[in-house]
């Protein structure tokens, strides 16, 4: 550059963002989307409907923005050099996507969260099951779950997980003597051992 040449005029912010690699906005949004998906799939019944809607909106936006920027960069010589230079930032989103989809497909988030909370949940279930029949315990965090509607059943205990489902609500039932008794607007799905997913239908 000649000594007296003026510096190149700065690009408009939007232009700079669109031609640059994924950075301070797109990557955190994709990480947030990954956390929403992992959180929702770690809860019985799939987590809250509001978070699901937010996740869908985020997925729609981030996928379209990432794909469009990648495709255009791939087809332009000035874009390809940028892809090579910042390949880690470009690879971060697909790597996160594969990791999240793989773990959800293998049911890892639910299994891990339940396994980490199982001893605390069992301890609460035993306490509730041995207590008076009419007592409803206060809402509380047990293990990694915010529990509500903690109550005793005929052969054990059951509790709903706060913020699950849209119309139906979901939680856990502990019933060591076999499946809990059938009731209207209620469904139980066996998980493992004495544990069942409790679905309270609307």
């Amino acid at each position: 550059m000649p000594e007296n040449a003026s510096p190149p005029p700065p690009l408009p912010a939007l232009t700079r963002i669109l031609i640059g690699p994924p950075g301070k906005v797109l990557l955190p949004l994709i990480a947030l989307l990954a956390l929403i998906i992992l959180n929702n799939s770690s809860l019985p019944g799939g987590g809250s409907f509001q978070l699901l809607l937010m996740g869908l909106g985020l997925a729609y936006g981030t996928i379209i923005v990432w794909v469009a920027r990648f495709v255009v960069a791939l087809f332009r010589s000035d874009g390809r050099s940028m892809l090579r230079r910042h390949w880690v930032r470009w690879a971060a989103a697909p790597v996160m996507a594969v990791a999240v989809i793989g773990s959800v497909y293998a049911d890892l988030p639910f299994s891990a969260r339940f396994a980490l909370s199982e001893s605390s949940l069992e301890s609460l279930a035993r306490t509730v099951a041995s207590g008076p029949a009419s007592t409803d315990d206060a809402d509380q965090w047990v293990g990694l779950y915010p529990l509500t509607s903690i109550s005793r059943t005929e052969d054990g205990a059951r509790f709903l997980v706060d913020g699950t489902g849209f119309l139906n609500q979901y939680g856990f039932a502990w019933s060591p003597k076999g499946p809990p008794a059938e009731e209207s607007h209620t469904d139980y799905t066996h998980i493992q051992g004495p544990w069942y997913i409790w679905e309270m239908q609307w």
């Binding site: 690009l11 669109l18 031609i19 379209i64 794909v67 469009a68 920027r69 495709v71 000035d78 874009g79």
Partner: peptide, 17 residues
């Protein structure tokens, strides 16, 4: 949406060029 985004990015590259 995807086509509009591709148009936006292409135009941004053209402006920068």
């Amino acid at each position: 949406s995807l086509l509009a985004m591709i148009a936006a990015v292409t135009r941004a590259y053209q402006d920068a060029e």
